[in-house]
Design a protein around this nucleic acid. Sequence first.
DNA 1: CGGAATCCTGTATGATACTG
DNA 2: CAGTATCATACAGGATTCCG
Lengths: 136, 136
Amino acid sequence: MKTADAVLDPLADEDGGFDVYAKDCPARMVLNRLADKWALLIVKLLKGGPLRFNQLRREIEGVSQKALSQTLRRLERDGLVDRRVFATVPVTVEYSLTELGRTLAEAFEPLADWAHSHIREVLAAQSRYDAVSEAA
Amino acid sequence: MKTADAVLDPLADEDGGFDVYAKDCPARMVLNRLADKWALLIVKLLKGGPLRFNQLRREIEGVSQKALSQTLRRLERDGLVDRRVFATVPVTVEYSLTELGRTLAEAFEPLADWAHSHIREVLAAQSRYDAVSEAA
DNA sequence: CGGAATCCTGTATGATACTG
DNA sequence: CAGTATCATACAGGATTCCG
């Protein structure tokens, strides 16, 4: 395709930003990455400090080792998570947030809070909706 | 208080919240819904006022009519978006944010801002990562 | 215009097994 | 412990067609 710069420049707008609604906008790629089923959950967990692979796996109920592995690699690639290997006898791998990751974790917090505090309203809305469409 | 939801109670923790890391936690369902590729994009768009179906479709480059339709229905079901039909000659359908939806839009803003202002860092991290792994 | 129904395919995901 | 590799599949998602 194009080079990285060629992609960026035409999309940059006056305020130095990007159009999230443009197809190939990097910001949308970022958003899509964050839309990952586990990514934000992991980031939020790591806010509490470094964790090892299987610790994460135990904490996040329902994640497969494959999904966890993939998500961690993507997060590492995006510079959000740091991966450190310790040459202990059974090898130990520790994941932690980078500086960038920490800023993300903070930006995510309002959304997490929102989910937390509006679950009941959402569930109620769903029931209402289902009741109506079921009636038809 | 313990009536309707057998699902909710066992998951409620001391502070009256939910454990996002539990498999069947409603909060996680909410989060997963938000993790939808288009949901947040739509919510953000509707902050600017009501829009019709094809307006949304045009604004969000790359969304298929099916994906848009499905996402809108889900958002409506969750009580985040309001759908109003006008009996004009070619029927007009208008989508707008509900009160609940507006609170979500606000909670989302920090994350959108984050994506906006950290794209370059993420892209840089990706390049670095790819350069290294490619070297192997 | 705003969608629902159908078909069809890529990919994401999960279970299983193997390695360092 | 911390993964990768393989396979098998379910399902989201796109393209197309048709309808109120």
